[in-house]
Computed example of a mutant assay.
Amino acid sequence: MSVATDPSLLPVAAAVIALHDARLSRPGWPAGEDEAGEDGVWHWIALNHRHNALLWDEEDLSRRTTVDDREIAANKRAIDRHNQARNDATERVDEWLLLALGLVDAASARSDAPTARLPPGARLNSETAGSIVDRLSILALKCRAMRRQCERGDVDEAHRRLSRTRLARLEEQRADLGGCFDELLADCRAGRAGFKVYRQFKMYNDPAFNPVLAAERPRT
């Protein structure tokens, strides 16, 4: 049985969280990384995390008020690119997991209309496993940012105390979400639940579908 169809090789939340934290602690990351060292679903989990981190940095930069508007425009365009890449990686995570679970027709998995194969009576989970991975990535970034607030020396103790309270809540949310991820995959293995690959069809990046970009194109 290949990796792509072996349910025993499905990721667990603790390993996903560990990957997220390991990447955040790596010097120089996320710049210059393409996650080529990861195999299978882990490549897409790592790539999703990388683009979330790059997106986070661009979001911070786009809030600047003392730079030329051209720099902010460049940040906004970078945000669109990273958001698209993050979304694409999320969909690849779902494709890989559904193939491993046997819950999608392999020939249609990468198409605009993947054919689901849910067992009779299985509940359809509204949130996909890939979207949970995406949310865990964002929570990892939030935890890091709040942890830095706890360590600041240029603020008073009240600020650090509030930051510690918020960090504890964020860590609780991440643990709870990780539990939901593991429970969803366990239910999928047991035939009690399933999810589908949902295409986001983000139109703002596509000149063929964004009406403003379409209007800018020269008429022939």
Results as ranks from 00 to 15, higher is better:
74 A>V: 05
104 V>M: 08
40 G>M: 13
170 L>G: 02
22 A>T: 14
178 G>T: 05
53 A>K: 05
4 A>S: 01
211 P>E: 13
43 H>Y: 12
95 E>K: 07
39 D>T: 08
202 K>D: 10
37 G>A: 12
72 I>P: 05
161 R>P: 01
201 F>K: 14
200 Q>I: 04
5 T>C: 08
126 S>W: 09
164 R>G: 00
187 D>W: 03
210 N>Y: 09
36 A>P: 03
132 I>W: 02
177 L>S: 07
87 N>P: 01
165 T>G: 04
5 T>R: 11
102 G>H: 14
110 R>V: 07
194 G>I: 06
73 A>E: 10
183 E>K: 14
220 T>P: 14
155 V>I: 12
152 R>I: 08
196 K>Q: 15
154 D>C: 15
145 A>I: 03
51 H>C: 09
160 R>Q: 04
4 A>C: 01
73 A>K: 13
93 V>S: 00
80 D>Y: 00
211 P>I: 09
105 D>I: 06
30 P>I: 03
149 Q>H: 06
26 R>M: 11
39 D>H: 10
204 Y>C: 01
173 Q>D: 11
133 V>T: 10
215 A>M: 03
78 A>P: 00
78 A>C: 12
194 G>P: 06
20 H>S: 07
37 G>N: 01
86 R>N: 08
83 N>A: 15
42 W>M: 14
122 A>T: 09
203 M>C: 07
204 Y>I: 06
121 G>K: 11
195 F>E: 06
79 I>K: 12
175 A>I: 00
6 D>R: 14
192 R>S: 07
141 L>P: 03
29 W>C: 13
193 A>W: 10
66 T>L: 11
71 E>C: 10
177 L>I: 08
126 S>Q: 15
40 G>W: 09
177 L>G: 02
46 A>G: 10
147 R>W: 00
82 H>R: 00
98 L>T: 05
175 A>H: 06
83 N>K: 12
190 A>P: 02
182 D>F: 06
158 A>M: 05
81 R>T: 15
6 D>A: 12
217 R>W: 07
151 E>Y: 00
48 N>L: 15
110 R>N: 10
162 L>N: 14
68 D>K: 08
157 E>L: 10
156 D>Q: 09
35 E>P: 01
78 A>L: 11
73 A>W: 06
35 E>K: 07
64 R>P: 00
102 G>Y: 09
74 A>M: 04
28 G>W: 01
122 A>D: 09
86 R>E: 13
171 E>V: 03
92 R>G: 03
195 F>Y: 12
15 A>M: 02
18 A>K: 12
136 L>E: 10
91 E>N: 08
